[in-house]
């Protein structure tokens, strides 16, 4: 098949999203946060349904009930960790308390990561075909613990390789039906992008920050591949530093001057920016995708990631 480009669009608008977002945030407030899982589902459903690939939108299949059960489990897990910490602190053993807390965190984060991807992917579908994450919990664990350790030992320098390894592993295990994904970015490149970005941002008194973001976006997007048999789909970033400046600066102003009420417009601008700055080309025949992934309804990981405020970007 001939190489061609594909369409990726965000069709939502701020006003529609605001109504959904606001009503759900409001119910969440008057139920003292108990409505949070349902609010999250409502927001995700809207965002997914407005993101179109080849003219067909994605669908979020998750339910408030699943997220609520996961939320309770996650609270119990995190609560047990905090409980152990305070108990040891109470027994005047601050060093043990600290160690237990740190180890607990180091163990719970990969668990949250694994759970998030497993749940979120299985609850994502396109034209009725489910996505999936086939990573192995043990392997992610090993990857995480080694990387975590090396990052501490090297005073953070290894962090770039650590995060890149995690990303490569996770993306390498993502699927949409019987198609697979691949991330080809190198840890060294990721390090250099961040190192130079950081230095130049300092030197330029912050101005380079937007170009740093552009470089990062390029690194993520350009190294992403989708494979279907011997067919391949690549992505190319069209984003510019000026574009990032426009996105981030205006978003910041919107949030500050509306005390957060403009969040739906900020999300809309961001989604539009991301989708319109990714150029997919390749020869994958999407009509030929076949359902291969099962359902996975345990949302504990996803909720745990929310509790930890882990920012998991897709």
């Amino acid at each position: 098949m001939e190489k061609r480009s594909y369409s990726l669009r965000y069709t939502g608008n701020g006003g529609d999203f605001f109504k959904i977002w606001f009503v759900n945030a409001f119910i969440q407030v008057i139920t003292l946060g108990l409505y949070y899982p349902w609010a999250k589902v409502a927001n995700l459903k809207y965002l997914y349904s407005q993101t179109e690939w080849e003219g067909s939108p994605f669908q979020f299949l998750g339910t408030g009930r699943e997220l609520f059960i996961g939320f309770i489990k996650a609270i119990l897990l995190v609560g047990a960790l905090y409980g152990a910490f305070f108990y040891l602190a109470f027994l005047q053993m601050p060093i043990y308390a600290f160690l237990v807390f740190l180890t607990g965190f180091a163990l719970l984060i990969p668990l949250a990561l694994h759970g998030t991807f497993k749940y979120r992917m299985s609850r994502t579908s396109w034209r009725g075909i489910r996505a999936g994450y086939r990573g192995d919990r043990g392997e992610l664990f090993k990857l995480f613990i080694t990387g975590f350790f090396l990052t501490i030992v090297t005073l953070g320098i290894y962090g770039a390789w650590f995060v890149n390894d995690l990303r490569t592993y996770i993306i390498g295990n993502l699927r949409l039906g019987n198609s697979t994904f691949q991330f080809k970015g190198k840890g060294t490149d990721f390090f250099l992008v961040n190192f130079l970005g950081y230095l130049l941002t300092l030197v330029s008194l912050g101005i380079y920050f937007f170009w740093w973001q552009k470089d990062l976006f390029e690194f993520f997007v350009n190294n992403l591949k989708m494979k279907y048999g011997d067919q391949e789909l690549s992505f190319k970033s069209k984003a510019t530093g000026g574009g990032f400046f426009n996105l981030i600066f205006i978003n910041l102003l919107l949030i500050i001057f509306t005390l957060g009420l403009a969040t739906p417009w900020v999300v809309t601008r961001t989604m539009e920016f991301v989708t319109s700055n990714i150029e997919p080309t390749g020869d994958v025949d999407f009509d030929a995708l076949i359902q291969t992934e099962g359902s996975y309804t345990d949302a504990t990981g996803e909720d745990m990631a929310d509790i930890f405020d882990l920012d998991i970007a897709f």
């Binding site: 034209r127 009725g128 030929a288 076949i290």
Partner: peptide, 10 residues
């Protein structure tokens, strides 16, 4: 119509 087995539209 998408039959849930493949992404081919009918």
């Amino acid at each position: 119509y998408f039959d849930g087995k493949s992404a081919r539209p009918q």
